[in-house]
Design a protein around this nucleic acid. Structure first.
Lengths: 344, 344
DNA sequence: TATCAATATGGTAGCGCTAACATTTGACAA
DNA sequence: TTGTCAAATGTTAGCGCTACCATATTGATA
């Protein structure tokens, strides 16, 4: 008889946790019904559902998301790739993403590249390996390998922070225009010899885009647009050093347009210590609209970007796509706002 | 004949990606050999390995981590639960964790509780559902439900930031002692009427621990230890308001011990604007040792905590446990360092 | 009461991988 | 040549869940 052939069972340790089968036995239903209670409660009669829920509590069942994701080929992971966690700007975007995604039961996988496109590619690879449902990535520039992988990937991809020619969803602001906006403001205020200061612009190419906008306006006005680039990271200390450097190398500069508020704040605090008057001796402007800028003296003239909004809008767009709703628009300009402080 | 019975195959869409089986076919080896090339390359002969690696490239194979994790009951996920992402302090810990864990191929699952123990419990539940290999959680206090879940969980748990009676691994510093240390310093400098200012201390109970240490020292010296608690979050603006509040309610206070550097910095910047001299009119001290404190005038007297070290040490301890090495010690005091600035 | 759709539940076979055990290969000593 | 043993590779059966299809149950209608 065929059933007389003993197939030796090969036990494996597994996770030792109660499974859906244990719950099903307890509730005297089939496994799939338990699965339905967890995934589509409305498709199960209230009475049955109650019995299953009681059984879940009784056996102390903890759902195994890995198994579910594998079986359904849908992980509910959202891969998020940012260049840095030390920069509050990206943290605010992440918070915006997290707030929206968690409502829908998505889990964020977070990775930071340290502004290295090789690492970015590596992270993308890893995250695809986790069967992510969607990917959020900072910026529009990726290396060739990464571009190729992304091009072939079927799920939603959102490129954020920056607007331009994107692969799929695009949420951000127009950096060249932000640079132009601040340059125009400084010209309107009567400044003529305006230095632009950036830190590690090779990495932070959005700072370069702003510089290009800035230069465009100055050159249109027949002015030069000197650029000072610092090697270190864009922290307070770097801003302080940059101020000294500008005073030494461009002694007649009457304004400095910093690539971000960290640099600008460092410069203002340094100016305070050194007795350099801002804006009388030199005006200072930043970019980002960080809180600290409104607490220093003089308060910082800067451009505010709606970072939490970027996160929220991105999440909305992705969720809509994943839930099968049509997307009105793939590209969203969140805009920015120039805040005139006392420093310029 | 039994093999004449046609069992209808039931095709499922799956992920449509090449699998380990496709690679195996291409390389003319078995699937498990491909698996070994990925997981334990040294156990495969160099020649075979090369063939498999070529096949991987050729078919464009992307490893499915979900399937691997399910099969091996080992996800290589590290769940990390922190109260807030807006606070740079936790970000630095996370960076320390990430730097170590990524070397060993672990992926961090990040969650923030917004200082809510219910949300903490919910997050822990979710993360256990992902079969996390280990859990890193902030602080020693959890609600009953959470405590119960954690008590039954077999994998490594690290409670960080704070030292005390922990479930498993414990890496942090002695907050009451930090409070005592700063109180002693202020007494030594001749201050006698010292206010302690905290924001939302009900949530941030590590600030309370520091206050208790602070009070202990003052009371031992026969002094009072007035406490001013602010309702808002501990940001610059709150520090500014707190300074006004102390000046109004405790006009003879000669020093303020702030629960953190954000508050203290806000107060110093506000004092500057208001023409209040620090430390002559009132001395100011903080806690954390943030960068900004050393760029304002006067520079901030504070206590530096080695946050990246907390992350790194925690990761080391967890990795050791997961890789089966014995742990010398479950508890690690990372210490702290009082930095005397100009503000007190 | 018979009929038929709509609703609720169940059986089975995977998802893509690896643990456990089985077998083959090869290097070297006897 | 043969035997021995370690190293390399293969076979099989799950990991815990859900897609797919099939069947049972319900309730409204003829």
């Amino acid at each position: 008889m065929s059933n007389s052939i003993q197939k030796p069972k090969r036990p494996r340790k597994g996770s030792m946790q109660p499974t859906i089968a244990d719950v099903a036995r307890e509730a005297e239903v089939s496994a799939i019904t338990v699965s339905r209670v967890l995934n589509a409660p409305d498709s199960v009669r209230a009475k049955t559902r109650a019995r299953v829920e009681a059984a879940i509590d009784k056996v102390g069942y903890v759902r195994n998301m890995l198994a579910g994701s594998l079986a359904s080929a849908n992980s509910r992971f959202i891969a998020v790739v940012v260049p840095s966690l030390s920069n509050i700007v990206f943290i605010e975007v992440i918070e915006g993403l997290q707030n929206e995604f968690e409502k829908y039961g998505y889990q964020i996988l977070l990775g930071n590249t340290d502004y290295d496109l090789e690492r970015e590619c590596q992270l993308v690879r890893t995250f695809l390996g986790w069967s992510s449902s969607a990917l959020v990535i900072t910026g529009l520039r990726h290396n060739d390998a990464c571009q190729k992988i992304l091009g072939q990937w079927p799920n939603p991809i959102a490129e954020i922070m920056e607007l331009g020619e994107a692969l799929d969803i695009n949420v951000g602001l127009d950096h060249p225009e932000a640079g132009r906006c601040m340059a125009r403001y400084l010209l309107d205020r009567g400044y003529q010899r305006i230095a632009y200061v950036a830190a590690q612009m090779a990495n932070d190419y959005r700072a370069r885009l702003r510089y290009e906008g800035h230069r465009e306006i100055l050159e249109a006005a027949g002015l030069e647009a000197p650029l000072i680039e610092m090697d270190q990271l864009g922290q307070f200390e770097t801003g302080a050093q940059a101020l000294d450097k500008v005073r030494a190398e461009l002694p007649d500069a009457d304004a400095i347009h910093f690539a971000n508020d960290d640099l600008a704040t460092g410069a203002i605090l340094h100016a305070q210590r050194r007795g350099i008057r801002v804006p009388e001796d030199v005006a200072i402007a930043g970019f980002n609209g960080l809180a600290i800028g409104q607490h220093i003296s003089p308060t910082l003239t800067t451009i505010r970007s709606p970072r939490e909004t970027i996160g929220r809008l991105t999440a909305h767009a992705i969720i809509a796509r994943l839930e099968g709703q049509p997307l009105a628009t793939l590209s969203h300009d969140v805009g920015f706002e120039l805040h005139a402080g006392e420093s310029a």
